[in-house]
Simulated assay, not measured.
Amino acid sequence: MTELAKKKRPEFRNIHALQDLPSYRLPPAGIVSILHRISGVIMFLLLPFILWMFDASLSSEFSFAKFKAVFNEGCGFVPGWFIKLIALAIIWAYLHHLIAGLRHLFMDMNHAAVTKEFGHSSALTVLALSIGLTVVLGAKLFGLY
């Protein structure tokens, strides 16, 4: 009998979510995959807001001035910084979804890239690029430069 067959693998029948899941570390590729789905849901749910922003910014000079006023001063009981925060969430969702989607397409086209090492390094690259670009565009959105 081989040594592998002799080793008894742990058997998990009843996984307690509050005790077992916090100790589980998801690899970066898993995190990117889950965030890819979350970013798609965010973009879908905020599609009416995206369409309003697009329409308000292109309709006329008056609607663009109103659009800028909503971002600077707010709208009704919603402050302007909160609307900017929603726009920042859309920016992150778009950037992450785009970069992670390109990663998935590259891995689909190049089967030699489907390795544990490439998955780990490309997932970290996706996270770094999407967060870095979001910080840069968020600084612009909030008027830091």
Rank of each mutant, 00 (worst) to 15 (best):
W81E: 07
W81A: 02
F82K: 04
F82C: 03
I83F: 13
I83T: 09
K84N: 13
K84Y: 06
L85I: 04
L85S: 14
L85F: 14
I86P: 09
I86R: 01
I86Y: 01
I86W: 07
A87C: 14
L88C: 09
L88T: 04
A89D: 05
A89N: 06
I90S: 01
I90M: 11
I90H: 00
I90Q: 03
I90A: 07
I91Y: 05
I91K: 06
I91H: 00
I91W: 02
I91G: 04
I91C: 15
W92D: 00
W92V: 01
W92S: 04
A93S: 15
A93Q: 09
A93H: 03
A93M: 09
Y94R: 00
Y94I: 12
L95W: 06
L95P: 12
H96V: 07
H96P: 08
H96Q: 07
H97Y: 07
H97M: 11
H97P: 02
H97K: 11
H97W: 14
L98H: 06
L98F: 14
L98M: 12
I99A: 00
I99W: 03
I99K: 00
I99R: 01
A100C: 04
G101I: 02
G101Y: 03
G101M: 04
L102K: 06
L102A: 01
L102M: 13
L102D: 08
R103T: 02
R103A: 04
H104K: 11
H104T: 05
H104F: 15
H104P: 00
L105Q: 09
L105I: 10
L105G: 08
F106L: 13
F106A: 11
M107Q: 13
M107C: 02
M107Y: 01
M107L: 12
D108H: 09
D108P: 03
M109I: 09
M109S: 13
M109D: 10
N110K: 13
N110R: 14
N110E: 11
H111W: 08
H111C: 05
H111K: 15
H111M: 07
